[in-house]
Design a binder for these strands. Structure first.
Length: 195
DNA sequence: TGAATGATTTACT
DNA sequence: GTAAATCATTCAA
């Protein structure tokens, strides 16, 4: 599921401005069993409520007092799994992104991180729960990456054994990744078939 | 009612 | 490389 998100185009129409990006990095969060997920333990709260709803919706949350993250709810109602969008490549509205991000010198700094891309897209708390199948926030088909790499997730070391799981999917050829892949290993698959 | 913490980013040493 | 910024949500009392 998370793998299928790579290459898709994330489009957001807001205030007459249209911004779009190609997803190059995503992480899977697997419901009640995943210690790194907000839905761990089956706790159903106001914040993660949307993860328990139908798939295809946006789960946006505020973290660290200053950043937003965007997820795609991926599983059936009642099972809280989601895919975190960690990085995209700018396609449309790059100037809008640039102004929102404070005119960074390097184009890559616009969207190479979860908090960065949300700021660039202008996504915030109020967009949580949006249906991603229709405007103003939606996904469109795009070319799949030629080389997809599975690597451990980022920033979830506290998750015990789950931190080692290869639940992060990246476009190996993209230069917009939030963190460069650890090793140029070419071996993939052969790990937990969880998705 | 109060304290702890996080799916991060940025700046500074 | 290390530390600070900063607040909604969560856990404890």
């Amino acid at each position: 599921m998370a793998e299928a998100c790579l290459g898709k185009h994330l489009v957001f129409e807001d205030a007459g401005q249209v911004v779009a990006g190609r997803i190059v990095e995503a992480e899977a969060y697997l419901g009640p069993e995943d210690r790194a997920a907000h839905s761990f333990g089956g706790r159903r709260t106001d914040r993660n409520e949307v993860m328990y709803g139908p798939p295809g919706h946006a789960y946006v949350f505020f973290i660290y007092g200053m950043h937003f993250h965007m997820n795609l709810v991926t599983d059936a109602p009642g099972f809280p799994s989601a895919v975190l969008i960690r990085a995209v490549e700018p396609l449309l509205g790059e100037e809008v992104m640039r102004s929102r991000r404070g005119n960074p010198k390097k184009r890559v700094l616009l969207t190479n991180g979860p908090g960065k891309l949300c700021q660039a897209f202008g996504i915030h708390r109020d967009h949580g729960g949006y249906d991603l199948c229709q405007p103003p926030l939606y996904l469109a088909d795009g070319p799949a990456p030629q080389k997809i790499r599975r690597v451990p997730r980022i920033g979830v070391d506290y998750a015990g054994g789950w931190a080692k799981r290869l639940l992060r999917f990246v476009d190996a050829e993209s230069s917009f990744l939030s963190v460069p892949p650890p090793k140029p290993t070419r071996k993939r698959g052969a790990v937990a078939s969880v998705e």
